[in-house]
Design a protein around this nucleic acid. Sequence first.
DNA 1: GTATCTGCAAATCCTTTGCAAGTCA
DNA 2: TGACTTGCAAAGGATTTGCAGATAC
Lengths: 147, 147
Amino acid sequence: MHETAGITGRLSEQGYRLTPQRLMILSAMESSHDHISAEEIYAQVAAKYPHVNISTVYRTLELLKKLGMVYEIDLGEGRIRYHAEGSGHHHHLVCQSCGKITDIDEATLSSLKDSLLRDYGFSADLRHVGIFGLCEGCRKKSSAKKS
Amino acid sequence: MHETAGITGRLSEQGYRLTPQRLMILSAMESSHDHISAEEIYAQVAAKYPHVNISTVYRTLELLKKLGMVYEIDLGEGRIRYHAEGSGHHHHLVCQSCGKITDIDEATLSSLKDSLLRDYGFSADLRHVGIFGLCEGCRKKSSAKKS
DNA sequence: GTATCTGCAAATCCTTTGCAAGTCA
DNA sequence: TGACTTGCAAAGGATTTGCAGATAC
């Protein structure tokens, strides 16, 4: 449950300072099972430490991204979401009608990854992918009544 | 080559007016083989018709989107790109190292579409998808020297 | 002690909106 | 004519940046 230690270790190993802000941002990311936005991280941290500034959140996220410790995902909301490495990779089916997000597991895309590598020499990063479309419920609704 | 006629027909059929701005925006989109951003459309139109405003471009794109005449694609640049329906669907391999964009054809993702429908009841819209990763050249470079 | 970090405020970028004037049908 | 469109200017939200003061090590 407490992997913060390992993660912060990686920070200091690379010569970066361990500040309370960075620790709290990391902890906020880990406590979130979903992907989390900069604003949400900020709100969570600010609840305990009102002094933080959102620009620190952005700067920290950029650092963690550079170090490969967080990943970005764009679910088409006009804002980026972040996800801590080590919390497991998965993909998201985003329903364009009701907004529902379904997680699917990594294996679903593995054959695609293989064929892209084989046919195009392209090494796809499919760790966090959003796929847009219609979920089962909305699909049935829209085929029942044409509105 | 000149499918503007058909497209504009669809506009007036639906009760929308054919204004010079809309015509020029449509023509700019068709002349672009790649996906094009709002800013780029604006620049192209403004070259011939300096009076246009970028908000008209956005409003027109939203209309065309609603009518299913253009699609959006997000290549992770912090801005949306647009693509005219009828210019063919395809997908993009975006190299995160050199920025190179390789088009691949629609069929590559068709088995994925099938399995999402079968396993999750999810009807995926895979008409314009960006896949991130490393292209062949950058992959070789990064495995040759660890920088 | 000092280079790294942070908070603050302002700037930037992309996109949207209100409104009065213009224009297609 | 009259509803639909536009230009303009200003607002909006997300993210970035410059800088001086604060702090981890």
